[in-house]
Each structure stands twice: as C-alpha cells, then as structure tokens.
C-alpha cells in the first residue's frame, strides 16, 4: 500500500519493461461505492441509538445496583448526550435497522451475483501470505506478496466484517423478538447471551472502523478517492487489454 518503490498500481507492471501510459483504472464498481457510503450514516445512527439503549442497562451492571460496575463510564454517555434517551434510542434503532438490513442484503446479493465475493474471500493457498503481508504493512519487509484486488489481510478484514454484520443483524432480531423468534434467541445461547454478542459485534465493528480509517490514511488520497469516483490513476502498459470508458457514454463500459 505505502511502498514507493513500485509505480502506482504496482502489481500489474512489476515485471513489465515496455512503454506505459497513465490511465484511470476502475477500482470499485458503482454499486459497491453507493452501498459503502450508505452504510456510513446508517451504521452511525445504529451505534449512536444503540448506545442510548445500552445506557439504560449495561450488561456488566448487576441488577439492583444501578450506577456501579459499568463497562462504559457514565461520563461518556453524559458527554455525548446518550443518557436518559431510551425511547428515542429505540425508535431510531428499530427504524434505521431496516436500512442496515436492506443495505447489507443488497451487498451480499451483489457479491454473490457479480462473483466479486472472490475479491474479499481469501483462498486457502493465500493464507500463507499472512505473515509476509503483515511484515510488509508494518515496514519490516519490502516485497509485497502477490495479490488480486486486495491483499490477504484486507480480504480477511472485509470478509470478517461482512460476517460480523450478519451476526449483528441475527442477534439483533434475537433480542428484538425473543418469544416469536425464540429459536433464533436459543441459537445464540439465550436472551442475555444474544444481547452480549450483539454488543461485542458492535465493539468489533468500531474496531474495524478505526483500523480501516488508519489504513485509508496510510494508503493515501488517491486510494480514498477511488471509493468516491470508482477509478484510480495507474501506469499501465500501452495497449494493454481494457475496456475504455468515455465519460459521457458510460454504457460502453458494460459491453
């Protein structure tokens, strides 16, 4: 990601000695970009309203001893005005939850039908690249293992976060309808267990978000910008096979 030795879009031209030209190459299809950015406000509202719900009963708190023993200190809730807003929290959570479900379903269906799930699910053979990729990421190894759209660590992160999204939805329904969907609640070890898993998945998503932001900053602006425009400038071999897109006639691209 951050190596300066290779030209932009290094992996394709590593072994190429012929003439190259700078072209904008597609990185992220339109559907992925829209779903990616939709997810940001939706997930923000879900976490914000979720904390308003969580405030009224922290599962590390012992019933009958309100106020003591919280995982999250009360000052945190008060500073962000998350305290004493349970009814509002619930109303936002049970509304925006549907948007999260729809966006997530659209994402999974898109990956399935476009076969782009192959971009984020690591192949068994690539798992051996984990140590080398990590060493490269932290600057202890120059050479970057061969990769497709994403390196093996990115693949693990993106597929894990997708799975976590599915678990957070399933546990969400398990604690939302523990009688009418009792089998789902039971599958997660009961009501309190499902609620704890739901919360831990949120912690996981926030953890992913922080690492994601760090990595995006490290990768630089043009990588970030490709999630907005879909394209990134690269040095590519002259005449290399590609479908050229004209800005005002994008349908050509789908041929």
């Amino acid at each position: 990601m951050s190596d300066t030795m290779a030209p932009p879009g290094d992996t394709d031209t590593d072994d190429f000695d012929g003439p190259t030209e700078v072209l904008a190459v597609e990185k992220h299809p339109r559907a992925i970009r829209w779903m990616h950015w939709f997810n940001f406000p939706i997930l923000s509202v879900m976490i914000w309203s979720g904390l308003r719900i969580y405030w009224s009963f922290d599962f590390t708190r012992v019933p009958g001893e309100f106020g003591d023993n919280n995982l999250i200190p009360n000052g945190f809730y008060e500073a962000l005005e998350l305290d004493r807003k349970l009814a509002r929290g619930l109303s936002f959570h049970f509304s925006f939850g549907w948007l999260f479900v729809l966006n997530g379903l659209a994402y999974v269906l898109y990956l399935a039908f476009s076969k782009e799930w192959k971009h984020i699910v690591p192949r068994i053979a690539d798992l051996k690249n984990i140590p080398a990729t990590m060493l490269h990421e932290i600057g202890l190894r120059d050479a970057k293992p061969a990769q497709g759209q994403y390196n093996v660590m990115q693949q693990l992160a993106y597929s894990t976060v997708t799975l976590m999204g599915a678990i957070i939805v399933a546990t969400g329904f398990a604690i939302y309808k523990p009688t009418q969907l009792w089998w789902l609640t039971t599958a997660f070890g009961g009501y309190e267990s499902a609620r704890a898993i739901h919360f831990l998945m949120t912690v996981g998503l926030v953890g992913f978000f922080l690492i994601h932001i760090l990595q995006v900053v490290r990768a630089g602006f043009s990588n970030f910008w490709s999630m907005v425009t879909g394209y990134e400038l690269e040095d590519v071999p002259v005449g290399s096979a590609s479908t050229h897109v004209d800005i005002d006639d994008e349908e050509v691209a789908n041929v």
Binding site: D12, A24, V245
Partner: peptide
C-alpha cells in the same frame, strides 16, 4: 493479480478529472 479481470475499465486522465468533479 491472477483474479484481476484483464479487461478492466479505464478512462483517460482528462475524463477522470471531470468524473472526479
């Protein structure tokens, strides 16, 4: 590298600027 579609979509840097805006 191997599962990268060789027929990737490309556009000229000039068009990319317009698209960026």
């Amino acid at each position: 590298m191997s599962d990268q579609n060789p027929r990737r979509k490309t556009m000229s840097p000039e068009d990319f600027d317009i698209r960026g805006r």
